[in-house]
Design a protein around this nucleic acid. Structure first.
Length: 800
RNA sequence: GCCGGGGUGGUGAAAUGGUAUACACGAGAGACUUAAAAUCUCUUGCUCGCAAGGGCGUGUGGGUUCGAGUCCCACCCUCGGCACCA
């Protein structure tokens, strides 16, 4: 019997001591293959099934590419800055430097038990000064290019904890820790100008990504084309500019709404009788959570009349201006409102604003008076000047063009994507390398003084400002411009900044004098395969693309995109709930790995179902995989008599073809099924040493320890991972005979074994001769015969 | 509400428009054994039939086709993502 756990330890040590997985970063002979998994946050919990589900199959794919002849680079690291370590420190007093070092060490040990080919010499830990020095350097590059800037932004503020909260720390509008009511507070924040790259980020050419992910990103970027329309204020020369994607509805516009955050809003009402109410309504809206503001239904519409009117440029009508909660600072922050939009319609009903339709199914005049809802469908325009009688969709571009010619409209492109807020009023992150000078303003730290070290003697208990602000030694700085006394930035960077460039650092992890070297990075970029969870579709994956493009524009890298092929592994749940420590439903692999070994566990995870589907955890089937490993071990390690050499060869080559094809598209479950069928068959045919060796090589990527041990037994030279993957002979895949399926009126009535090269005529003869088929052909007229060579014969008959 | 997956045996699941349920778990029967475990062999969608064989069957209802799990239309359920984006 095969002793998995014992054998595995032996090989893991040998792989380690022989440096098998150390990458030759400049191998001129083999094409490169950068095989990357999303690096984890080093939590204190044990490695769970989800980690294995990500790293095991990803490593199998890397091993497959290695044996296919590629120089595979498969690194690992830790995304170790972030909130959890800081919260843990607040709770227990254990310093993040300490807890993170400890957690990384524990995780490294556990990950080694999987038996992956990570090159630990080139490890990345984002919270080390060697790493975050370069994260700070990247910030400075963006700053120099004008892509990092400061502006006021509303943040979640907990008055109880005296701190900024992340969205996930706000539960039902309350602080998850102290349950205080969370308020919005305007703070100066740092942003990265990702909007400038919105258009470029919509280019997904040459990327082998899941359609779904591309769609999600496109939606997130949210490009729309429309028109900015100028509405002149009644009685003044001021102009309100509204953005619309529906200029075709301009003749139905009966009011205009502004976002409460619009900079001009208070100017319009200051000192008027409307000021008080508008202020009150704005305050109320500010208190609304995003969910309240976003909830559906007319009841939730909230707003106030500003006492001002604008002129509709197309018909000179005087229409009222309102502030409304459903208007956001998107586009221009001003919306032209009409009866062809459900939100506008509901708002108008609540505040009894007149409405009118200009589109109906057939162009007949209709009125909103009796209507219960907006008319949002397409149709024929009426009461629309020169455009009356046209289909509204066809009219739309013409209206836009006409508006531009008339001078009150301008065609505009808009994006939902907002600039990336990168500053955090927190301790455990890379300090922002800026100095705030009373005289010179914001001054970047000179590159030669990086890293700005994160001080260790800091009190992390929140009390108003970022913990760094209370460390006098850290805060004291000299302005690099004027030489005067100044203050350091007390903010740290969002951890997404750390993870947006780590892929460039891996091959350069040991370089001390630069973030990365262009030559090396150009050789290894793009990442050929990136495997990780779909939850990062819009944030991490978009940010990494953005940073990569910025670095390319600055001349630091040459590739357009960081990730060539992307694959999302599915989620492993327990009783259909996400595994988490707080739910207490985390399944640990240890028990199974201890009993069956890493290979069996890895195989079982792969066999459970499609890799991208995930699934609900149960251990019911693991015995089947364990049995298979034993049977495979026996069939490959024992000398057996070959009973049918021809059948054996065909079996081996057919299995190679199936397994290779399946692994290429990461269908590990069916690859394993092919192996199982092989084991079931091979007992009948027998197998010789040459073919045993082929099969052992074939299984090596998905069961590396088992294969290495078998390779030794079969007197192969260490290591099997220096061997190349077996190829199949296409000639051996063709069977000489095949089962011809015979149908009558679409129902299978019989089968007959015939020669592969049989003519249509002979096939029909053979098919019709089957007694059970003949029975169904009796007393009827054959109308049609369909013959699919190598597969099937179908008689279409009519009862005479 | 919108966008995107997915609904197939008792269970995890296979299936370029061409034999639905491969592979595995579980269950049942048998062999080996003093016995058990392990291993091996057979059976295993439902249903009628002694059998040969027939009928039904991939969430529901329609459609296209000689032929549909697969394509089209409508709907139900479910899991993700987004959510007043003008």
């Amino acid at each position: 019997m095969y002793n998995g756990p014992g054998v595995e330890k032996k090989w893991q040590e040998k792989w380690d001591s022989s440096g098998l997985y150390r990458t030759n970063l400049q191998d001129p002979k083999r094409p490169k293959f950068y095989n990357l998994v999303m690096f984890p946050y080093p939590s204190g919990d044990k490695l769970h099934v989800g980690h294995w589900y990500n790293y095991g199959p990803a490593d199998s794919f890397g091993r497959f590419m290695r044996m296919k002849g590629f120089n595979v680079f498969e690194p690992f690291g830790f995304d170790s800055f972030g909130l959890p370590a800081e919260n843990y420190a607040i709770k227990t007093g254990v310093h993040p430097v300490e807890s993170i070092a400890h957690n990384c060490e524990t995780m490294r040990k556990q990950i080694r038990a999987i038996g992956t080919m990570y090159d630990w010499d080139l490890e990345v830990v984002t919270s080390t000064p060697e790493y975050y020095k370069w994260t700070q350097w990247i910030f400075l590059q963006l700053y120099k290019k004008g892509l990092a800037y400061r502006k006021k932004a509303a943040v979640n503020w907990c008055p109880g904890c005296q701190t900024v909260l992340a969205n996930e720390q706000v539960v039902d509008g309350k602080c998850e820790r102290c349950k205080s009511e969370v308020i919005k507070k305007d703070l100066l924040q740092w942003f990265f100008g990702i909007r400038e790259y919105a258009e470029q980020l919509l280019d997904y050419s040459d990327m082998d990504w899941p359609e779904k992910t591309i769609l999600m990103q496109k939606e997130w970027i949210g490009k729309s084309t429309g028109v900015n329309i100028n509405f002149k204020m009644d009685g003044s020369d001021e102009v309100l500019t509204a953005y619309t994607t529906r200029p075709d509805t301009i003749y139905s516009v009966t009011f205009v709404v502004m976002a409460p955050e619009h900079p001009l809003l208070m100017e319009l009402v200051n000192g008027t009788e409307y000021e008080k109410e508008v202020r009150e309504v704005c305050d109320q809206i500010q208190k609304q959570t995003l969910i309240e503001r976003a909830s559906e239904g007319g009841k939730n519409k909230l707003g106030a009349f500003l006492g001002k009117y604008v002129i509709n440029p197309v018909n000179g009508e005087k229409i009222p201006v309102y502030v409304a909660n459903f208007a956001l600072m998107y586009g221009t922050g001003v919306v032209m409102a009409d009866a062809h939009d459900q939100r506008d319609f509901e708002f108008a009903q609540k505040y009894t604003i007149p409405l009118k339709f200009v589109i109906s199914v057939d162009g007949a005049k209709t009125s909103p008076e009796k209507a219960k809802e907006a008319y949002t469908a397409d149709g024929i325009l009426f009461d629309s000047g020169d455009f009356t009688g046209m289909n509204n969709r066809e009219a739309l571009p013409k209206v836009a063009e006409w508006m531009e010619k008339k001078g009150f409209g301008k065609r505009t492109v808009n994006y939902k994507l907002r600039d990336w807020l990168v500053s955090r009023q927190r301790y455990w992150g890379a300090p922002i390398p800026m100095i705030y000078c009373a005289k010179c303003g914001d001054v970047p730290v000179p590159e030669e003084s990086l890293p700005i070290l994160l001080p260790e003697d800091v009190d992390f208990i929140p009390r108003g400002r970022s913990p760094l602000a209370y460390n006098e030694k850290f805060m004291k700085a000299e302005c690099p411009k004027c030489g005067g006394a100044a203050e350091r930035a007390d903010e740290t960077l969002d951890t997404f900044v750390d993870s947006s460039w780590y892929l460039l650092r891996y091959p350069c992890a040991n370089m001390m004098d630069k973030a990365f070297e262009k030559e090396t990075v150009d050789h290894w970029m793009p990442v050929d395969m990136y495997i990780g969870g779909p939850e990062h579709a819009c944030m991490h994956l978009l940010y990494a693309r953005f940073i990569h493009k910025v670095l390319r524009d600055l001349g630091y890298v040459s590739t357009k995109e960081p990730f060539k092929r992307l694959f999302h592994q599915g989620l492993i749940t327990k009783n259909s709930a996400k595994m988490s420590k707080s739910k207490g439903n985390v399944v640990s692999p240890d028990e199974f790995v201890g009993k069956y070994g890493s290979d069996v566990f890895r195989l079982y995870l792969m066999f459970m179902g499609p890799f991208d589907a995930g699934g609900d955890w149960n251990d019911k089937g693991i015995t089947g995989v364990a049995r298979f490993v034993d049977r495979f071990w026996r069939a490959m390690s024992e000398k057996t008599a070959v009973v049918d050499a021809d059948a054996m060869k065909r079996l081996v080559h057919r299995t190679i073809a199936r397994v290779t094809g399946d692994i290429e598209i990461l269908h590990f479950n069916t690859a394993i099924a092919a192996f199982m069928e092989f084991v079931n068959e091979v007992s009948k045919t027998g197998i010789d040493l040459e073919h045993q060796q082929m099969m052992v090589k074939l299984i090596a990527p998905i069961a590396p320890h088992l294969a290495e041990e078998l390779w030794e037994v079969l007197e192969g030279e260490y290591s099997i991972f220096h061997q190349s993957y077996p190829a199949y002979d296409p000639a051996l895949l063709q069977e000489t005979m095949f089962d011809l399926v015979v149908q009558v009126n679409g129902k299978v009535r019989g089968k007959v074994l015939v020669d592969r090269g049989i003519s249509e005529e002979d096939a029909i003869k053979a098919g019709a001769a089957i007694p059970n088929v003949a029975k169904f052909l009796e007393g009827v007229t054959v109308v049609k015969q369909i013959y699919v060579p190598g597969k099937l014969l179908s008689f279409v008959v009519k009862i005479a």
